[in-house]
Structures are given as structure tokens and as C-alpha cells.
Computed example of a mutant assay.
Amino acid sequence: MVAKRNHHIKTHFGIILFQDYQDGRPSKRRLLVTSTYSDSYQLLLSLLVEARKEAKLTQTLLSARLGKPQSFVSKYERGERRLDVIEFLNVCRQLGADPYKMIHTLENVSPT
């Protein structure tokens, strides 16, 4: 579902400014507001970074375990890329972290 209002497009994935589209394609100045910037998601990212550091792994070592480039780890840790549930579970597995404990922490600390 896409609803146009004023000068932006509201989608299920966030708000995209209308002027950031040229000829129906995203321009280089594209602004997308998504839940990667929510307090809850930022807390999840900090828990993942903390778990990586506790496991004494660099982004490079973790990415090798995941079979991904180092930029994959860097991007999700900075909130530039979202992790889906399967990726989250795999990252936790490679870190030796308990995904259920992380989710429980999110539920107890985060209102949203």
C-alpha cells in the first residue's frame, strides 16, 4: 500500500520524500525513515555489538564465520541494513549469544 500525501510517499517501510524521486526512480538524495532508527532497534544493535566484543571477534572474523563480506556486519551494526529473523539467529549462533535473552532484554527495556 502506498499513500501519497503532500510532498512525501508513506509506505509500509517508512516515509520517502517525494522530491527525492526523479523519473520514478530514487535520486541519490533519497531519505527513508524506517524502524532501524527506533530506540528498540538501536538497543538490539548495541546488544549485538556488545555480544561480538564479548566473543572477542572483529567484524572481519564474524563476517568470515557468517560467510559474508565485512561490510555486512558493519552495515547492520550501524543500522544501515536491517537483519531479518533468520540472519539475526545466525549472527547470534556465530557469536555464541542467546537470541532469546536478547529478545527478552528488548521486551523488558523497550516500550516499542
Rank of each mutant, 00 (worst) to 15 (best):
G24E: 08
R65T: 05
K53E: 03
L61T: 15
L45D: 06
K68Q: 10
A55W: 07
K56C: 03
T58S: 15
V73C: 02
E107W: 14
T36H: 00
M102E: 04
G24W: 05
A55R: 11
L44P: 03
I9P: 04
F88D: 04
G67R: 04
V109T: 05
V73I: 11
A55V: 03
T60V: 08
S74R: 04
S71L: 12
M1T: 05
A51Y: 07
D20W: 00
A64W: 03
R30M: 01
A55M: 02
V109Q: 09
E50G: 07
R93F: 11
E54Y: 03
L61E: 15
K28S: 04
L57P: 07
A51R: 14
Q59E: 03
D39A: 15
L95F: 09
R25H: 10
S74N: 10
E107L: 13
L66F: 04
S110N: 05
I103K: 01
Y37G: 05
Q19K: 15
I103F: 06
R82V: 06
L32F: 01
I15H: 01
M1S: 08
L57Y: 05
T60P: 02
V91S: 00
T34H: 13
H104S: 01
L47C: 14
V85A: 03
N6V: 06
V85R: 04
N108F: 07
E87R: 09
R78Y: 02
L17K: 07
K4N: 02
D39S: 11
S71G: 15
G14Q: 04
S71Y: 12
T112I: 06
L31R: 11
A3T: 15
Q70A: 09
